[in-house]
């Protein structure tokens, strides 16, 4: 079954590139950029891995996360970061990724947005050429920063949207104190200028289901990141199913961040039965202990989806992706090939 899950042509829609910085790369980049890590930071890759598995609390995680950010300086650093992720995802059978990045977190450190985007863009192209995967960049706004900063970021990113380098807009960081309504101008401004750009937002992870509803209605997003609290509104569930609004779920992250105690508590079965499309994603895999296949396996061990149910999940992920129809057709064909290859499993269910 693990091999079946690995070979499924998976699409990932919720991964923060900054959250894929593994300790091994972190130490490499620190050395390359002559950055002295804080004295209280783990001294070796092994110690760092150990620490990442045992964060004392959220602040402990954030402290390490910000140290990680500090080693990303040059275009090559961003390239290496993204490329490491694409290779890892490819090994997990991920064929299409739509990846988040937070330019504000870099610009406020004095790193030009051009450096960030150029490095990521080059990695997307190389991953396509070398690995055969397709990848899209989604710029996220940090919701703990003022909306005016978000508007300024959108303005500075306009050339990349214009050129089709960045494909979407998202909204991340602390959800509950900063509801989606704060960012209506940001979303409207971008959409007015670039109608082809796709919109998404983190909602319904900490915030209740109204955060999802308001993201849909006020930001006009067509996808919801997390969205687990949608389960508490029948009306919203019906809307998501009827309009095929995809939720990008992050099971292992939800456990690590104590949204639930165990993956089994997530409403994944409920979403599937209600026809609410969702994909399974890794969020910040370097910090939360699992890439996309790990998340698939965790869900499988808790919910025991049949292969047919898994193919439905994967098909929903393909249909909900922001790649063109040609690529979607390719991915559906890949899925069909896997179904054929594992036909014994399929017929058993």
């Amino acid at each position: 079954m693990t091999e079946f899950l690995r070979e499924l042509p998976k699409c990932e829609h919720h991964v923060h590139l900054e959250g894929t910085l593994e300790p091994s790369l972190l130490f490499q980049l620190a050395e390359r950029n002559n950055i002295t890590l804080p004295s209280n930071f783990p001294a070796s890759v092994a110690a760092c891995n150990e620490r990442y598995n045992n964060f004392a609390d959220l602040q402990d995680f954030l402290d390490h996360y910000y140290v990680g950010m500090s080693v990303l300086i040059k275009e090559d650093d961003f390239y290496d970061l993204a490329m490491e992720y694409f290779k890892r995802a490819h090994a997990d059978g991920c064929v299409h990724s739509e990846v988040f990045f937070d330019p504000q977190g870099h610009v406020e450190r004095g790193i030009p947005i051009h450096t960030v985007v150029s490095g990521f863009e080059r990695a997307c192209k190389d991953a396509n050429e070398k690995l055969g995967t397709t990848n899209k960049l989604i710029m996220c706004l940090l919701r703990h920063l003022p909306a005016a900063d978000g508007l300024q970021t959108i303005a500075s990113a306009a050339p990349y949207y214009q050129a089709g380098v960045i494909h979407g807009l998202g909204l991340d960081s602390a959800e509950k104190p900063f509801p989606p309504e704060l960012f209506t101008d940001c979303y409207k401004t971008l959409k007015d200028q670039f109608p082809h750009v796709n919109l998404t937002a983190h909602a319904g992870e900490e915030g209740d289901h109204t955060y999802v509803t308001n993201s849909l209605n006020k930001l006009n997003v067509t996808r919801i990141d997390h969205g687990v609290n949608s389960q508490h509104s029948d009306e919203l569930m019906a809307h998501l199913a009827e309009n095929q609004v995809m939720l990008s779920l992050c099971p292992m992250s939800n456990v690590k961040l104590q949204v639930v105690k165990d993956v089994s508590e997530l409403p994944i079965r409920k979403f599937l039965d209600a026809g609410v499309p969702f994909s399974i994603n890794s969020d910040d895999p370097a910090y939360f202990g699992g890439y996309i296949l790990d998340n698939y396996i965790h869900v499988h061990t808790r919910f025991g989806f049949t292969p047919k149910e898994w193919t439905k999940v994967v098909l929903n992920g393909i249909n909900g992706s922001w790649c063109d129809e040609h690529r979607k057709a390719e991915l559906r064909q890949k899925l069909q090939n896997v179904e054929t290859k594992f036909s014994d499993l399929m017929t058993d269910n």
Binding site: D57, L58, A174, E175
Partner: peptide, 13 residues
């Protein structure tokens, strides 16, 4: 401050 919660929500609510 001691706070065993890892949830980002614990920072705020």
């Amino acid at each position: 401050d001691y706070n065993p919660s890892m949830g980002s929500g614990s920072l705020y609510f």
